Simulated assay, not measured.
Amino acid sequence: MTKPGLPKLVATDLDGTLVRSDDTVSAYTHEVLDRVRAAGIRIVGATGRGPRLTSLIRQDIRSADFLVMAQGGWVLDQAESTYLRQSWLPGSTLLPVLDALEAEVGRLSLMIEALEHDEAPLWGDFDPTWRYPVTVLPRSRAECLSGDVIKAFVRSFGHDVDDLLEVARRLIPEHVASVTQAGLDYVEICPPDVTKATGLAVVAEAVGVDPADVLVFGDMPNDLPMFGWAGWSRVAVANAHPSLLAVADEVTLTNDEDGVAVYLDKLLSR
Score class of each variant (00 low, 15 high):
1 M>I: 04
2 T>P: 05
9 L>Y: 08
10 V>H: 00
11 A>M: 05
14 L>W: 05
17 T>W: 12
18 L>A: 02
23 D>H: 14
24 T>A: 03
26 S>G: 02
30 H>M: 00
32 V>I: 00
35 R>P: 01
42 R>I: 03
51 P>H: 05
52 R>W: 14
52 R>T: 08
56 L>D: 08
57 I>F: 02
62 R>F: 04
64 A>H: 02
64 A>Q: 03
73 G>H: 12
77 D>M: 08
79 A>S: 13
82 T>M: 12
83 Y>T: 00
85 R>E: 12
92 S>C: 02
92 S>V: 02
93 T>I: 08
99 D>T: 14
109 S>V: 15
110 L>P: 01
113 E>M: 06
119 E>Q: 14
119 E>S: 13
121 P>A: 07
121 P>G: 02
123 W>N: 09
126 F>I: 05
130 W>H: 13
139 R>F: 08
140 S>V: 07
147 G>Y: 12
148 D>K: 11
149 V>S: 03
149 V>M: 04
149 V>P: 03
149 V>G: 02
157 F>S: 10
167 V>A: 10
177 A>F: 10
178 S>L: 07
186 Y>M: 08
187 V>W: 11
191 P>E: 05
193 D>N: 12
202 V>H: 06
203 V>D: 07
207 V>I: 15
210 D>M: 08
210 D>N: 14
210 D>C: 10
216 V>H: 07
216 V>D: 12
217 F>D: 05
218 G>S: 10
221 P>E: 11
223 D>L: 07
223 D>K: 05
227 F>G: 01
237 V>H: 09
238 A>R: 15
246 A>D: 04
247 V>I: 03
251 V>E: 01
253 L>I: 02
257 E>D: 15
259 G>M: 09
260 V>K: 01
260 V>S: 03
